[in-house]
Design a protein around this nucleic acid. Sequence first.
DNA 1: GCCGATTTGTCCGTATGTATC
DNA 2: CGATACATACGGACAAATCGG
Lengths: 242, 242
Amino acid sequence: MPKSKYEDIYKDIKRKIESNEFEYLELLPSENTLIQSYDCSRNTLRRAIGLLVTDGYVQTMQGKGVRNIYQPTQQTAFTLGEIETFRESAIRNGKTPLTKVLLFVEVTADKKLAERSGFAIGSELFYIQRLHYLDGKPLIINHNYFLKQCMPELTVAIAEASIYDYLENTLHMSIVNSRRIMTVEKITEIDEKYLDLDVNDYNCMAVVSSYTYNSEGIMFEYTQSRHRPNYFRFQDNAVRRG
Amino acid sequence: MPKSKYEDIYKDIKRKIESNEFEYLELLPSENTLIQSYDCSRNTLRRAIGLLVTDGYVQTMQGKGVRNIYQPTQQTAFTLGEIETFRESAIRNGKTPLTKVLLFVEVTADKKLAERSGFAIGSELFYIQRLHYLDGKPLIINHNYFLKQCMPELTVAIAEASIYDYLENTLHMSIVNSRRIMTVEKITEIDEKYLDLDVNDYNCMAVVSSYTYNSEGIMFEYTQSRHRPNYFRFQDNAVRRG
DNA sequence: GCCGATTTGTCCGTATGTATC
DNA sequence: CGATACATACGGACAAATCGG
């Protein structure tokens, strides 16, 4: 439910850029023109443009205009700065996703897990291991820890479909931000077994650890995502601020 | 030269959060209070807060307030979403940086380099290999390609200090955004030689490729940054938008 | 449950500054 | 120089969520 005007405008311009309505390095219509097209105030339009800037879609140049700098990714890439599910990312990249649940248990956070995850000691959690396939190839093993109190009715079936979809659309939880840390780690036996890897080839995995909060400010998820190295590709756009 | 009011406010609040003036999960003073403290308009204050949100420093909750969710990183981490030099990052993490120039030559982009870097074929470039040390340990090998026309007078001495410092403060170029792609790649002989690595240990490197633009919209830099895997740590804050 | 006060979210209009052409 | 385009800043209005009485 995109109720806000600036988000609608943002999405509309984003869609236009993605469908190549503007050439690479071409200037977008000026602010005043866009204000008239969208029948909105200057602030509202500038807010939409601001989002496109942080996404790395456009670049603004004072006195000149706003230029399209979007370049579609050749390979499958996960996008940083935005929270996107495996399924959403796969679809955006035109691939077929599949998820297999390897393990679905309830655990209580002991001292060690609490330190690693950031949950309080004694928290009741779902621990889920999932294997994600893209076009039939196993690429990612996820170790998810979800706070049980936020989703007491979670099932294997939901985990196989999309947990985020369930949280947002069924439980109406709103997910707002996620702190992620990327590292490179040695392959484990589990990685080797399920991803069908050869230690003599790559002996490392790309690991993304994430701590995710909902709109009530509760950290409800800690996940370690282990990616097959030669398929791992994360993209980011950085903006320099004085 | 941070001339704008909202940036000053942003930096001031950021500094306060970093120096633990607010406890973890504590609410910041309300908008109205801060408006009075900083003697500014609501929009200006909200803009500053917005920056802190995308940085992952605070979380806003409608009807409740703005909460501090900043957690200092235990280990050295590079921050995503912002452009930061090796030197700036080291200082922020309380470490001593050192840079050695391994190679400094001029090259012309051939077809292969053009495809990889995004520069036009025939572009005249500086190709610089640099080794970055942190607290005496070699951590990163950078392969930099800079567009010569943007900085004809570049020297080895500048490359050993800080190229960005030179570009911003001497040439008054303003760096605005950078597209970065993170991957994991096999170790090369150069990595092995200079980073003093053992292939029987980790056989991979964390690789960050970046394409950087200035305010005139010229892509003036392509860099491949190869990080020692067990010291590599990138941090990111992601925000979910409907 | 209701109501009012507080707090953040969205949107508008306007004025002024600065860079480009 | 004037016209155009983006950048900053201010003030006001109303909506939506929260909290306390």
